[in-house]
């Protein structure tokens, strides 16, 4: 029998397999080396960077909830300049696709980062995190307003020749409207979902657990929401989707593929099992073999048929 073809086409790039690791959970690619060889992955997504360095929020930044994790890291990162100087040179040696993740608080922020990250820099694609407040528009999140989201993507598109991935926020009423907006802005690929806004209160101190009060919920608890959004967007928008939210096992990953994701990404699942990405690759391979698929891409969107 011919081995299953796991290669995955995503907005003009070819991945070895459809398994990626998620922004903010996988550092800058070195942290998990003792657990998971990067050449086994389809790609990794780097921690979100901003034009200027950020110290992020005070601790506690994490709160555990049933089958979930709330985080309020506050986009701590070394800033663009330091990223270009100290991190980027090492990235070209990474034996898998490297997706940079950019965040900003104005259109200029996004544009200046896109300008610095081009083909040949060691970066394979640019993921644009639009779940940030637009400080010029009263703090309204780019990711919750279709017009702002479209503008951000257009600003990025104008400055870079890399494929651009729009990372959508689930904290909206109509995810399809947001997906259409970023498509109009020029997005090549969609990533969904980012974390769901939540909070948790300590019964002893009678205060919020997180220093920041609110945090983003991730992990298995959010998976049904993510699968639903991937399904809805896959029905309505003709762009490849990277599905994520609560994946810990190959079964979870297959569920996203069936819902219409072309690739999947693992975030919080790495904390639970640092070898989860390896297990998922193997599990998907076996599933395809047992069911007689010659390519993993045959699974994409299967649940929509009939």
């Amino acid at each position: 029998m011919k081995p299953v073809d796991l290669t995955t086409q995503l907005g003009g790039i070819t991945l070895r397999n459809p398994i990626i690791t998620s922004s903010g959970t996988y550092g800058f690619g070195e942290e998990y080396l003792a657990y998971c060889p990067l050449e086994a992955l389809g790609g990794i997504t780097l921690k979100g960077i901003t034009p200027l360095p950020r110290l992020g929020n005070p601790v506690p930044r994490l709160a555990e909830t049933p089958a979930g994790l709330l985080n309020a890291v506050g986009l701590e990162n070394p800033g663009l300049e330091e990223f270009l100087k100290s991190y980027l040179p090492k990235l070209s040696k990474i034996p898998t696709a490297v997706i940079a993740n950019i965040s900003g608080f104005s259109l200029d922020d996004y544009a200046c980062m896109a300008r610095a990250l081009k083909k040949g820099s060691g970066i394979t694609a640019l993921e644009v995190n639009i779940s940030c407040p637009n400080v010029k528009h009263g703090g309204m999140h780019f990711g919750t307003d279709p017009k702002s989201a479209q503008e951000v993507m257009a600003a990025v598109k104008a400055e870079t020749d890399l494929p651009i991935i729009a990372k959508l926020s689930p904290n909206v009423t109509d995810i399809v409207e947001m997906a259409r907006a970023v498509q109009r802005g020029g997005a090549d690929v969609l990533s969904l979902i980012n974390t769901l806004l939540g909070m948790s209160i300590d019964l002893n101190s009678q205060r919020p657990v997180l220093a920041n009060t609110f945090g983003g919920l991730s992990g298995p608890a959010i998976r049904p929401v993510a699968v639903r959004m991937v399904w809805q967007v896959a029905e309505a928008v003709d762009l490849p989707i990277i599905g994520m939210g609560g994946i810990t096992s190959w079964q979870d990953a297959v569920e996203f593929l069936l819902a219409g994701a072309t690739a999947v990404s693992i975030g919080t699942g790495n904390f639970y099992n640092p070898q989860a990405p390896l297990d998922v690759v193997e599990g998907i391979r076996n599933y395809c073999e047992q069911r007689g698929y010659s390519s993993v891409q045959e699974l994409v969107g299967l649940a929509h048929r009939g």
Partner: peptide, 16 residues
Amino acid sequence: EERMGCAVGACLGCVC
């Protein structure tokens, strides 16, 4: 001591 997510330096949950 600090609350930890990844425990390998990847998530920035545990900073001091």
